[in-house]
Every structure is written in C-alpha cells, then in structure tokens.
C-alpha cells in the first residue's frame, strides 16, 4: 500500500479504516511516517490511542506487532529469550555427555532464539517486511525497561551476546502510548514525536458513534455525544472515554431506544462508570447533562 503524502491523505486513510481524527493527530502520524520517528501518544483512557495504531497498520498494509507493557515486564518477554528446552534436547540428541564448544555454539543460533515483540519487529524489517510496532501503555512498565527502550529507539538494533547484533536498514513505525499514570522519562519523549489526544469534539464523536454503532438512531447518537461532552466537563475519578460512549450506544441500541431520557440513563449508567463514588456523583448530574441544546 502506498504511503500517504500529505496530512489530508493521512486523515482520509485513517477514516477509511473507521478511525476519525483531525489534522493535529494526523500531522503526528504523517511526520512519523515521513521522518521515521516514533510517535508518542498520551491521553486519558479510551480516547483511541491503541485503536489508532491498529487502524494505521491495517491501512498501511503492515503487520502490527504489539508489546503490551505491565509492571515487571522484562527483556526476555519484550525482546528475546533462548529456547532452553530445545537447546537441551538438541544437545542430548547429539549424544555427548560433555558437549564440545562447537556443539554449544550451535545451540545459540537463530533457530533456538525466541523473538519477542521488539526483536520480532527489527527482524521483520530486516527481512523487508514493514511493521507497525505498538508499545502500549508504557507508563505501566518499570523505569528499568524504559532505559532499555531508550537505547533501542536510538539505533533500532539489539545486541544478543551469544549471537551478535541484529539490526535493519529500515526502522519500524513505532507508536508508544501512555495513560499518564506516571510521567515517562523525558529522554524517551525527546526521541519521539509527541501528541496529546484529547476527547473528541461532539461532532467528531458523532462520526465515531455512527460508524461504530451501525443502525443507531440519529437522534440518539446526537443525544449521546452531547451528553458525553457535558459529562466530561466534570471531575470524575475516571472520566468515560470514547470506548464508554460506544459501549453505551450499543447498549441503548439493544434496548431499542431512539433518544435519551432520565430513566434509561439511570438504567444503563454502569456502561459509563464502574466505581461507586463516580456513580453517586453521576446520579446527581444526570438532569444537567440531559439539558436542552441539541447537537446540530
């Protein structure tokens, strides 16, 4: 598939994959593609960070390689691991009780290496298969891993002591995301293009809802987006994102609703909030969120 050659082309390309964004995010994507720099996306939960990477890969016709970060993520899960079982088996089949140096060197070859996402991405690229590498929710990983990542992002090669260095002429298109549960180290961000994804405008969200909840009544869709927009002005522990809007929309479609009223909002509130404190607060706000003033 051809690379987009303008910001417009990026907007269009993503929209074809059902992802709707403005020229600000599209600018980041465009530059990431053209300059070969990683794109760092920050934003509240559920604003479409992960989805962006998925749609991008799909539309570019590249394989998506995803590294989901979590506390305790280590190099062997993220980069590579030796397949010990296979190594042992191989040595035993060779029959030597005390294997020589050569036999040992053999079992530290490529076929005993288990590529994890990061190495996988580099290897794919080196074989001419372009990829999108999604490093999702980096804020959940430890700082130690961050330091490793910093190195990786600067030269896109991995050194495996037993085997040598694996690199590639092309770099993968890297998307990093963070929910901002903590600050990512500046050094990493400085290597990246940065974009803060905000909640979508009601108009944009309407586009998304229409596309992702097919068959939804137009009035209902407008009601939902207006409602969500008002709701997000308030302080909640966890403000609902686009993901919640979509869950809610789908629930309301199943209930055959064509507009919002206080009763149905109360019935379906669990689509929007999960914790008690937020739910209580929400109960009191419903009337205000439903207030007049429809989306045009």
């Amino acid at each position: 598939m051809t690379e987009p050659d303008s910001v417009e082309a990026v907007i269009q390309m993503l929209a074809q994959g059902g992802y709707y964004c403005d020229d600000d995010l599209a600018m980041g994507v465009f530059l990431a593609i053209k300059l070969g720099k990683p794109l760092f996306l920050e934003g509240e939960p559920g604003v479409g960070k992960t989805e962006m990477a998925k749609v991008l890969a799909q539309r570019l016709g590249r394989r998506l390689i995803r590294l989901q970060c979590y506390e305790g993520l280590d190099i062997s899960t993220a980069v590579y691991e030796w397949n010990y079982a296979k190594q042992l088996l191989s040595l035993r089949l060779a029959g030597d009780a005390a294997p020589g140096r050569e036999a040992l060197e053999d079992v530290f070859g490529p076929e005993f290496l288990l590529s994890r996402p990061l190495l996988d991405a580099i290897r794919s690229e080196s074989q001419g298969q372009r990829v999108v590498l999604l490093i999702d929710e980096l804020d959940r990983a430890d700082e130690e891993f961050e330091a490793f990542l910093l190195e990786l992002l600067s030269d896109f090669q991995v050194t495996i002591p037993e085997m040598g260095t694996v690199g590639s002429d092309t770099v993968p298109l890297v998307i990093l995301t963070s929910n901002r549960t903590r600050e990512i180290h500046d050094a990493i961000k400085r290597r990246c293009l940065y974009h803060w994804i905000d909640y979508p405008s009601p108009e944009k969200e309407l586009q998304i809802v229409r596309a992702k909840a097919p068959g939804i009544d137009e009035r209902l869709a407008r009601d939902i987006c207006q409602f969500m927009n008002r709701l997000r002005q308030d302080d909640y522990l966890k403000r609902p994102g686009v993901a919640e809007s979509l869950d809610w929309a789908q629930a309301l479609v199943l209930l055959h609703r064509d507009h919002l009223d206080p009763e149905v909002v109360r019935q379906t509130k669990s689509c929007l909030f999960k914790n008690r404190q937020d739910l209580r607060r929400f109960q009191d706000g419903i009337a205000g969120y439903l207030g007049a003033g429809a989306l045009e």
Binding site: D23, M27, E42, W196
Partner: peptide, 18 residues
C-alpha cells in the same frame, strides 16, 4: 496552523509544555 502543529509534534514532549 499546520506549521504550528508540525512544530508542536516535534518540539513538545508533554501536555504541560504544550
């Protein structure tokens, strides 16, 4: 606007800086 977005993308690295 595009010029600004472009520089933002390249020179900003967190929301507060934005």
């Amino acid at each position: 606007r595009r010029f600004r977005l472009m520089l933002e993308s390249l020179l900003v690295s967190n929301q507060e800086e934005l």
